Simulated assay, not measured.
Amino acid sequence: MEVTAYLDRIGYHGPHEATAETLRMLHAAHAFAVPFENLDIHLGRTISLDPASLFDKIVRRRRGGYCFELNGLFALLLERLGFSVRHLMARVLWGQTEVGPLSHRVLLVETGGERWIADVGFGGNGLIAAIPLAAGHEERQYADRFRVTTVEQGEDRSESRRGYRQEYRLDCLVKDVWEPMYSFTAESYLPVDYTYANYFHSHSPESLFTQKRLCTKPTPNGRIILQNRALKIRHDGQSQTEALKTPEAYRAMLADHFGIALSDHELSACFGERVETNG
Rank of each mutant, 00 (worst) to 15 (best):
224 I>T: 03
198 N>D: 07
187 E>A: 15
180 P>E: 11
204 S>Q: 10
214 L>R: 03
159 E>S: 11
201 H>S: 15
157 R>V: 14
210 T>I: 02
208 L>A: 12
231 L>M: 09
168 Y>N: 04
186 A>Y: 05
184 F>K: 02
233 I>Y: 03
211 Q>R: 15
185 T>G: 06
171 D>I: 06
213 R>W: 00
169 R>Y: 00
148 V>M: 14
145 R>V: 14
148 V>D: 01
221 N>I: 09
217 K>D: 04
231 L>V: 08
189 Y>E: 10
185 T>C: 13
213 R>C: 02
219 T>N: 00
175 K>D: 15
151 V>Q: 07
205 P>T: 11
202 S>P: 01
165 R>W: 08
153 Q>K: 11
183 S>L: 08
160 S>F: 01
199 Y>P: 02
175 K>F: 07
195 T>N: 12
210 T>G: 03
224 I>W: 04
219 T>I: 01
181 M>D: 01
179 E>K: 14
146 F>N: 02
207 S>M: 05
147 R>V: 09
194 Y>P: 02
179 E>R: 13
221 N>K: 07
194 Y>S: 08
176 D>F: 06
176 D>G: 09
215 C>L: 02
211 Q>G: 05
181 M>I: 11
207 S>Q: 04
176 D>R: 15
222 G>Y: 00
191 P>W: 07
166 Q>N: 12
191 P>I: 12
164 Y>M: 13
200 F>D: 04
195 T>M: 14
206 E>W: 09
201 H>Q: 14
207 S>G: 04
151 V>H: 01
206 E>D: 13
192 V>G: 10
151 V>D: 06
189 Y>C: 13
151 V>K: 06
208 L>N: 12
196 Y>I: 15
195 T>G: 10
187 E>H: 13
209 F>E: 03
227 Q>W: 00
206 E>I: 03
170 L>T: 05
189 Y>H: 15
159 E>A: 12
223 R>A: 01
230 A>D: 07
188 S>R: 15
156 D>V: 11
186 A>G: 14
182 Y>W: 10
184 F>Q: 04
204 S>R: 12
197 A>S: 15
165 R>F: 07
159 E>N: 00
170 L>R: 03
174 V>I: 15
228 N>L: 05
225 I>Q: 00
206 E>M: 09
147 R>E: 07
202 S>R: 03
154 G>S: 11
174 V>M: 10
166 Q>F: 00
192 V>K: 14
145 R>I: 11
230 A>V: 13
185 T>Q: 07
211 Q>N: 12
191 P>M: 10
233 I>S: 05
163 G>V: 09
202 S>I: 07
223 R>P: 02
215 C>W: 01
231 L>W: 03
166 Q>C: 05
192 V>M: 13
191 P>Q: 10
222 G>K: 01
172 C>S: 14
163 G>W: 00
157 R>K: 08
193 D>N: 15
151 V>P: 05
145 R>T: 15
232 K>H: 04
198 N>I: 05
192 V>A: 14
204 S>K: 08
149 T>I: 08
228 N>P: 01
221 N>E: 08
